[in-house]
C-alpha cells in the first residue's frame, strides 16, 4: 500500500463515520418534534408538565447540530458566498478549500478545543446538573458535545484536506498531460 491510498483510506473512513453519526443524530430531529408536541398536549390537555422534558428537547437539539455538522461539511452544505466560487475551476475550488481548511477551519477548531477543555473538565469534576429545579442532571454531557464537535470538525477537515489535495494533484497531472500533447 502506498501513502496515497493510505490517506484516501483514512479520508473514506472519516467520511463514513461522520455519515453514520449524522444519520444517527438525524433521528433526534424527529424526537424533538414529537416531544415538543407532547409537551403542548400534556400541558394544555392534561395539566401535566416537567421541566426535564422541556430540557430534553434542548439536549437533542444540541446533539443534532454539533454532531451533524461534520457530515454537513462533507456534503458541502455549509453555506458559502459563492458569487465567485461557483464559477471557479475544480482546481481553484480545491485551492480555496485547502487553504480555508488549513488557515480557517482547523485553527478555529483547535482553538475551541484548547479553550473549552478546562471548562468541560470542571463540569465533569462536579458532575454539573441543571440550573433549573426539576431539570436534567447531565450538563457535563451537554458541555462535552462542544469538544466532540471540535474534534469531529477537525477530523472532517483532515478528510477535506486529503480530498482537495488529491484534486489539485490530479488536475496538475492533467495540465501537464495537456501541455505534453501540445
Amino acid at each position: 500500500m502506498n501513502s496515497s491510498s493510505l490517506t484516501t483510506g483514512l479520508q473514506h473512513k472519516i467520511d463514513l463515520v461522520h455519515q453514520s453519526l449524522c444519520k444517527l443524530v438525524s433521528w433526534f430531529t424527529l424526537f424533538m418534534v414529537l416531544i415538543t408536541f407532547l409537551i403542548v398536549v400534556l400541558r394544555y390537555g392534561f395539566n401535566l408538565g416537567w421541566i426535564a422534558m422541556q430540557e430534553s428537547v434542548m439536549y437533542l437539539h444540541a446533539t443534532v447540530f454539533l454532531l451533524g455538522a461534520a457530515h454537513t461539511l462533507k456534503v458541502n452544505e455549509h453555506v458559502r458566498v459563492d458569487i465567485f466560487y461557483r464559477q471557479m475551476s475544480q482546481k481553484k475550488k480545491a485551492w480555496v478549500d485547502t487553504l480555508g481548511t488549513l488557515l480557517l477551519l482547523m485553527p478555529v477548531n483547535c482553538f475551541i478545543l484548547a479553550l473549552s477543555f478546562d471548562y468541560v473538565i470542571k463540569s465533569w469534576q462536579i458532575l454539573e446538573s441543571s440550573p433549573q429545579a426539576g431539570g436534567l442532571a447531565f450538563v457535563f454531557v451537554l458541555k462535552t458535545l462542544i469538544l466532540l464537535f471540535a474534534v469531529s470538525m477537525n477530523l472532517q477537515g483532515l478528510a477535506e484536506l486529503i480530498r482537495n489535495i488529491l484534486i489539485i494533484k490530479h488536475s496538475q497531472k492533467i495540465d501537464e498531460a495537456d501541455k505534453g500533447e501540445v
Binding site: 455549509h78 458559502r80 466560487y85 480555496v96 480555508g100 480557517l104 485553527p107
Partner: peptide, 13 residues
C-alpha cells in the same frame, strides 16, 4: 467571504 469558503469558518477564522 467572497473567496467562497464556508461562511461560518470564514467569520470565525
Amino acid at each position: 467571504l467572497l473567496l467562497g469558503f464556508p461562511v461560518a469558518y470564514s467569520l470565525a477564522g
